[in-house]
Design a binder for these strands. Structure first.
Lengths: 217, 217
DNA sequence: GGACGTTTTACAACTCGGTTACAACTCTGT
DNA sequence: ACAGAGTTGTAACCGAGTTGTAAAACGTCC
């Protein structure tokens, strides 16, 4: 089952949540301060975060920001704004108002875990890490310099991964040019991506058609 | 935490935003007209503005124009989004469409504050030490004389470190000029910063785009 | 007018994206 | 299986456009 990080300063609640998650087969790691939570998250990967919004040393959102690629459920005691935040649905995140029924929390945990594929602002595979917001690329944690054009091509490939893309279409999407004469431009850029990022296996050539970024080579 | 200015004529929304910001530890100052907002901003510095776009006496953009280098999140009603916000050359800012979930706003607040590092009063790396309050710069403990313009540029670079900044945006944030013709001004100032502070490795050129201050070269 | 800060100018150095040329490979028809 | 046509891989090269840099020109404040 899933590895779940709990960040909640009230020990009674923290224990209760951990106990219940454990009963339905998840592994829960309990933390009580933002610092602890970040440390735990740095050490081992988690599938889900359960974060208290208000904490003595920080707030749950700040912690979430630093671990942004992990889905989260927020716990809050903001009674006054309960109605406002009740229907909250955002990507793989959720929001629950204290005091809450444990059953409700467990249901939401299951729901979030089921929704593994969310609109991503990052993509990771093997040692490759692409941040679509910052437009940066890391290879084994080390920043790789891509030129604007190289990055544009990579982004199109990844966002259409597992789909064969014709040269025509690559030209249109990554170069913003609708026509394609006799030109080796794309081939050369594919070559550069493969070399810079070690993507020989992932970027597959489709003979007489174009290329495809593959997740399962 | 941060000092945040709210400009929103609907009292219910204004109160709600202020309440929620307060709950996660920020200081919110509530204003209801453009005039009030400008007055408040003139009296004390803010780290972030939350501005309603449509107001009885003015609009949020006009206020933002006058307080240029403070990051802002705009609140807009559904129909007025696209056209108005689109052509707007956005700095370290964001916009959100009403009606919005409070959590979403809070997340964006955290994101902006995190991106812009506004609440810090000094920055250190290698032998470089910048005091944003005193506006002084030490290199290996020795004071370095920067001119006003040089310092302004350095501050913008550092406060937006690890983000690629276009020349356009550097012009706007460090020179307070929104247009940029054919000019080598920025390049020359970058050159001086690099020379005076030995920042050849940290201030990176992004070809065809601008510059970026890097923490991990 | 002189000192200082800023911008422009001029040219050298460099970068990137594209082309080329040829080698290596893939597919098709026999 | 084989040959030949067509397609892709790849290193090397080139030119337009971009950036680095020193020096000159311009402003502005004492």
């Amino acid at each position: 089952m899933a590895r779940i990080l709990i960040l909640e300063d009230e020990k009674a609640i923290n224990d209760l949540v951990a106990l219940n998650l454990g009963m339905i087969g998840h592994t829960a790691v309990q933390t009580f301060t933002g610092r602890e939570a970040l440390k735990a998250a740095a050490e081992t990967p988690f599938d889900l975060l359960i974060l208290d919004v208000m904490l003595p040393d920080t707030n749950g959102f700040a912690v979430y920001e630093k671990l942004r690629d992990i889905p989260a459920i927020f716990l809050t005691a903001l009674g006054e704004t309960a109605d406002k935040v009740k229907g909250f649905e955002r990507g793989a995140d959720d929001y629950i108002v204290k005091p809450f029924e444990m059953t409700e929390l467990l249901l939401r945990v299951e729901a979030v875990l089921r929704r593994t594929h969310r609109s991503e602002s990052r993509y990771r595979i093997d040692g490759l890490e692409v941040d679509f917001e910052a437009k940066t690329v890391l290879k084994d944690g080390i920043p790789v310099d891509l030129t604007l054009q190289e990055y544009a091509l990579l982004e199109v490939l990844i966002k259409n991964r597992n789909i064969a893309l014709s040269r025509q279409r690559l030209m249109r999407e990554a170069w913003d040019v609708s026509f394609l004469g006799e030109s080796r431009t794309i081939d050369v850029h594919i070559q550069r991506l493969r070399k810079k990022l070690g993507l020989d296996d992932r970027i597959k050539t489709i003979y007489r058609l174009g290329y495809r970024f593959e997740e399962t080579p």
